[in-house]
Amino acid sequence: MLDIVIEARQAAISPSMKVKRILPFRLRRMIGPFIFMDHAGPVANIPVEDKALDVIPHPHIGLSTVSYLFDGQMTHRDSLGVEQIIRPGEVNWMTAGKGISHSERFEDPAALAGGLEMVQTWVALPEKEEEADPSFANYTPEELPVFTDTGIWMRLIAGDAFGLKNDVKTVSPLFYLHVVLQKDATFGLPKEHSERGFYIVKGSVELSDVTYPAGQMLVFTKGVDPVIRAKENTTLMLLGGEPLGERFIWWNFVSSRKERIEQAKEDWKQGRFILPPTDDKIFTPLPDDKSRPAGSSPEPQPLS
């Protein structure tokens, strides 16, 4: 059965970048290992001189960030020295492990002429991987298998689902798909994963005679095989996997141990994180605990 419907809430990740925040949600903190999900855009008419969209250097621990663009272009720089442009249909998979810092900048006006739209998720790491060395990989569309059928197009971003697999490196069982449905096409969810859901990027779907619009995430209990019908041309992001257990989240830090969050806060405050070598002139300061920064609470909260 349908477990819960999550309404996206507005949040801001930079002065001019407003996003729809889907996860974490107070009544459903994670779906499989997915602990965070933002939908940015669509943003149109971006001024050439506007740097306010940029997300300046900031830290992470205990997670992988997964960036996927529908439109536009973004430049990633991190403390490993990686500088990578990501374009629509590509995947940037950055694993923070014991600690990394990075920035996300929008530097090519021509690439933004058609607007900007992207989804970013965070995947929590298993306990044995939380202190792994940080890493980064970019995967091109040619590395991500596509399946088509009547009225259906889908790309496997990571994991395995519907018999599709790719070489995107993951460390726990999960699936993540970009799905486009034509009006009246029907679709389902992969059965091999215990926690599953989908976010409606645009369009709308019908499920058991109820219509759900864009901006909602639908989460299902194990064993249910829902029939999803597109009420119009619709784009979905499907995700899920196996649960990892309790997690704490504060600002950009995720861990199975609350004290590890406190250590990361102090490390960032004291400058013990390395900044991206080609983007080290400014950085995001540690938020005041009382400020309730986007995506966090004043104290680390368990996610399970």
Results as ranks from 00 to 15, higher is better:
W122F: 06
I46W: 04
L112G: 08
G240F: 05
P134N: 09
H102M: 04
L112F: 06
R292K: 12
H102P: 01
F34W: 05
R257N: 09
L303A: 11
E143A: 07
E195I: 00
A8T: 04
G89Y: 03
V146A: 06
A132Y: 11
T235A: 14
R260V: 06
S208Y: 13
L303M: 12
I13M: 08
I157D: 01
G197W: 04
R87I: 06
L63E: 00
P298R: 09
D133H: 14
G240Q: 03
D78W: 06
V219Q: 11
V205Y: 02
E195Q: 15
F187H: 15
V219M: 14
F198H: 09
A40V: 08
G32E: 01
V55D: 13
Q263M: 05
P88E: 02
F283W: 11
F273W: 03
P243M: 03
P42L: 00
H102V: 03
I228Q: 00
K165Y: 04
E131K: 15
I4S: 14
R29F: 05
Q182R: 15
D209T: 08
G115T: 00
F248H: 12
M154W: 09
I6D: 11
I22G: 11
S194F: 08
D184P: 10
M74R: 10
N138C: 12
K169W: 08
D288E: 10
K222D: 15
V123I: 08
E206L: 15
P276T: 06
S208D: 15
Q73C: 11
S204H: 10
W93K: 12
L125C: 02
D280C: 09
D167V: 07
F283G: 09
D225H: 13
D108W: 02
L63F: 09
E107Q: 08
H60R: 04
G97V: 03
D288Q: 03
R77A: 05
P109F: 05
P226K: 08
R28H: 10
E206M: 13
E49N: 14
Y212T: 06
Q263W: 09
P141G: 05
K51G: 07
V91M: 02
L53D: 08
R9W: 02
S304E: 09
E262H: 15
T150Q: 14
E195P: 12
L80R: 06
T221M: 15
L144W: 02
P190Q: 01
M74D: 01
I35Y: 12
I85S: 13
A294R: 09
I85C: 14
S291Y: 05
L2I: 00
L53Y: 12
V254H: 07
N138S: 15
D167C: 03
G197M: 07
D288C: 01
G81W: 01
K18W: 02
R196L: 04
L303K: 07
D50L: 00
M154F: 01
M17F: 10
D289Y: 07
H60V: 04
I282F: 01
W153Y: 07
W122Q: 06
S67P: 02
M154D: 02
I22N: 12
D54Q: 10
E107N: 10
S172I: 02
E107Y: 05
A12G: 14
W251L: 05
G151Y: 07
